[in-house]
Write a protein that binds this DNA or RNA. Structure first.
Lengths: 178, 178
DNA sequence: CCAAAATCCTATTCGTCAAATAGGATTATT
DNA sequence: AATAATCCTATTTGACGAATAGGATTTTGG
């Protein structure tokens, strides 16, 4: 149930463009984004083409050209971007609201797995369609303000590390940490 | 964010074995499961090997042999099976609680995407780790009882069909339809 | 003892596509 | 004219997901 790299890079790019807009930086070049985010330039170029074709990004050609958001951050949900670049949110096709695909099971009407995966999809959509790019950028900047990143190498997490469930949006907001 | 076929087939197999146990059918052969579920026999054989090695299934060799659940259905969550066969629930590695992987972003501590995906993972886990195989089998059988499947071909859904969010567990339970 | 049904084990294929790379035309600026 | 940048089309490559294959071993019943 992994998001493709393409999907991940697209989201990170949108967030980066959101931060740039917040800071009133104008357009940013693809090479700049690639460098800051440690992403392959050519791959990112193709991703930005998709985002542009879908109207989320606009670009400026020529020297000093680059990309910028084409819509207000509050008008873009994260779910839209995931669906555009990665595909449906549902873990299985028959549980998808937007890209339905019949599955091979013998009795779809009574399939407990399908019902379960519809719930999973609903849960994923409840988050990705609720939070806008603005929210994510806001949280990112607030976190940076609260806990300024150090200039030098941050302590490297070990391989055995895990992501703390309390590090999500909902938990941070609920605990008054943002 | 798609579940692999392997993961899907494993879940369907577990449900099938749960139904068999419910009906006190004893062991079921792999060829029988493959036939009923429209799955490739050899592929299913390998999946069952993994389930057996992990202690979820036990098998009986020889003529009239087959597979059956090795644990009570109430002691198996759907999340366990997904993690075993498909892998982590988190859409990105840095948001995983069980299979953490550092990502390529420049500043993980302040990454809004990571915080968001931790929420998504929490939401997925809240469902898959809450419902047991028993719940899924229960719902499946209840649905069959309420609305008996017809013997002949059920109306084929068209390609443009979508999965109704109201068809999930939570919605069905909430609306008193199960 | 044999045939049939079944699991168990090891191996291989293959096709798709995800991830990335490449080259060059065109645009804008200085 | 040079440089920085987007735009467009194409290609590679390698991994791995999905599936297939063959045969050894076990169990049962005749």
């Amino acid at each position: 149930m992994t998001l493709t790299k393409r999907g991940e890079y697209a989201l990170r790019t949108m967030i980066r463009l959101g931060i740039a807009e917040w800071n009133e930086e104008g357009v940013i070049s693809v090479s700049n984004i690639a460098h800051q985010e440690h992403l392959p330039f050519k791959f990112l170029e193709a991703i930005l083409t998709e985002l542009r074709n879908a109207g989320y990004v606009e670009s400026v050609r020529g020297k000093y050209g680059g990309a910028k958001l084409a819509k207000p951050m509050k008008a873009i949900t994260m779910g839209e971007i995931v669906r555009l670049i990665d595909g449906k949110l549902a873990p299985i096709g028959c549980a998808s609201e937007t890209e339905y695909e019949k599955c091979s099971c013998p009795d779809e009407e009574h399939c407990g797995l399908r019902m379960l995966m519809i719930d999973v999809r609903n849960a994923i959509a409840n988050i990705l369609d609720k939070y806008t790019l603005h929210d994510v950028v806001d949280v990112t900047l607030r976190k940076q303000e609260l806990d300024p990143p150090k200039k030098k190498a941050v302590k490297k997490p070990s391989k055995s590390r895990h992501a703390d469930p309390a590090d999500g949006f909902l938990a941070l907001l609920k605990n008054g940490k943002l």
